[in-house]
């Protein structure tokens, strides 16, 4: 395998992780990664050797996602499939650690998509702020304010969830 193909393959697990966290459905997420890779292979000549493969691929993934979300916008049944409902029913009453973890997944869904993207690129994928700005094609200030609002919002949701009496009946 060429070096360039190796570089791409190395990023696939990360693209899949981000896509899964963003879309909350494994199949939809892999479809997005598939679109991203097809597109990347079709424009491999546009990649500058030595430049950042991760931001290049994440940018393509982001653009593909924006395009498909736009197309599906009038079909909310297609984007609103939350696997959490299934998990919710299938999961037995659990220890508190597991409960917190799952609640963060659900809290993420309550963020705006803009905020979720930044929170995930930075908090999960570990992108530098400049890289996240590049991937999302946004000014740095916008990235920082979305990150700040997203994290604040997540915290509020989690705090609410932890309030006795308000906790959901499982």
């Amino acid at each position: 395998m060429d070096d360039i193909h190796r570089l791409i393959i190395d990023q696939v697990p990360h693209l899949r992780r981000y896509a899964r966290a963003l879309l909350r459905d494994a199949d939809t997420a892999d479809d997005l990664v598939q679109d991203c890779l097809s597109r990347a292979m079709g424009r491999l000549h546009l990649w500058t050797p030595g430049s950042n493969m991760r931001t290049w691929l994440f940018s393509i993934l982001h653009n593909q996602h924006v395009n498909s979300a736009r197309r599906l916008a009038h079909r909310p049944d297609q984007v609103d499939l939350s696997p959490d409902h299934a998990t919710l029913q299938a999961t037995q009453p659990e220890q508190s650690g597991r409960h917190e973890v799952r609640d963060l997944g659900r809290a993420l869904e309550q963020l705006s998509e803009d905020q979720r993207q930044v929170v995930l690129l930075v908090g999960l994928e570990g992108l530098a702020y400049t890289e996240a700005a590049q991937v999302l094609d946004l000014p740095m200030g916008t990235v920082m304010s979305r990150l700040n609002r997203g994290r604040q919002r997540l915290r509020e949701i989690m705090d609410q969830d932890d309030t006795p009496g308000l906790r959901r009946v499982k």
């Binding site: 791409i8 696939v12 995930l120």
Partner: peptide, 27 residues
């Protein structure tokens, strides 16, 4: 929050890359 994100989603990193994704890259 960051720690919990990793708790939930890092399992994806351990999954084998689906062959159809790998095939796109290897041509």
């Amino acid at each position: 929050q960051n720690t919990r994100l990793h708790d939930i989603y890092d399992t994806v990193l351990d999954e084998a890359i689906p062959p159809e994704l790998e095939a796109i890259v290897t041509g």
